[in-house]
Simulated scan of single mutants.
Amino acid sequence: MPVSMHKRARWMAPAMIVLAGIVAGAPAGADGRASDDIVEIPEWRSAFQTSGVSGTIVLRRLGDRRSFVSDLDAAERGLPPASTFKLPHLLIALETGVMRDAGPTASGSELQRITAAIGSERMAEWLQRLNYGNAGTTEGTGRSLMSDGLRVTPVQQVDFVERLLLGTLPASGRSQTIARDVVPGEQVGCDAVIRAKSSWAPTVHNNGGDAELGWLVGWVEMPREVWLFATAIEGNPALVGSSARQVTLDVFSRLGIGDEASCAPMPSAAAVATEPTQIAEVGR
């Protein structure tokens, strides 16, 4: 479904209600493009303001038909994917036989070599097939493919990640499994693991000032649910480096995702000391 056809609304209740069941909806479609409407939660913008950057975050629970964003307009604006493009790039390389496995992290020169081996025609064909962003390509190196012709919105990033997790992309199951497995994980709190791809790229504001674009795109695994997300930020290069992660964790914390306060309390030293006696008494 094109982004312009999504229903748009602004959320007026506290954001904590998102995890209280209000997002429940019909199951995802067969293609995994699950978001039928987008709800704006303006209070999340303060996470960006605190970090001194602008941008948006998109959140969707896997299988639901509603996405939540901090800024509707920014969530639908096409941006260069920078190195978040490595996920569809890896799928294309695997499906065309240019790569047999994920291998070590590709350097810039290696990425360009792989892109050249795929070829512009096959690259364009596969971007259309994957329905990734605007599916635009330009002739030349991997750098031009990632920064000049190709544009993807934060909502489209979440769409792609959802289809990857559901295994509904038009690629082999093996290729999709490899692409999922290369995304690094980080435990936050006691019950959540964030798996995400980050990237930074130079950009220019309308006023001509130098700025940088930052992405953090991936998903959060919890015992009972999975949340997909895409955070896009723009700002001073000195701030962008750490802000994508910081903003994302700030919003997650407001929703109780990875919140240390939700962890089960550790037993006291006194309780640990008496545990053997208690066990012995139970066994009598």
Rank of each mutant, 00 (worst) to 15 (best):
A117N: 14
I118E: 01
E121S: 03
E121P: 01
E121F: 08
R122I: 06
M123N: 06
E125V: 04
E125M: 08
E125D: 05
W126E: 03
Q128G: 06
R129L: 15
R129T: 14
L130W: 03
L130N: 02
N131Q: 08
Y132Q: 05
A135C: 10
G136A: 14
G136L: 07
E139Y: 07
E139W: 07
E139H: 08
E139M: 08
G140K: 12
G140F: 09
G140A: 11
G142S: 09
G142N: 03
R143S: 13
R143D: 15
S144G: 14
D148C: 00
L150N: 08
R151M: 15
T153G: 10
V155G: 02
V158M: 06
D159M: 08
F160R: 00
V161T: 08
V161C: 07
L164G: 02
L164Y: 01
L165A: 13
G167R: 04
T168N: 04
L169D: 02
S172E: 09
S172M: 11
G173W: 05
R174C: 10
S175W: 15
T177L: 09
A179K: 02
D181L: 14
V182E: 15
G185K: 13
G185N: 13
E186I: 14
V188S: 05
V188Q: 05
G189A: 10
G189C: 11
A192M: 02
A192N: 02
V193I: 13
V193S: 08
R195E: 04
R195L: 07
R195Q: 08
R195A: 05
A196C: 11
A196S: 11
K197Y: 02
W200F: 12
P202R: 12
P202Y: 06
P202C: 05
T203H: 10
V204K: 15
N207C: 10
G208P: 02
D210K: 06
D210I: 12
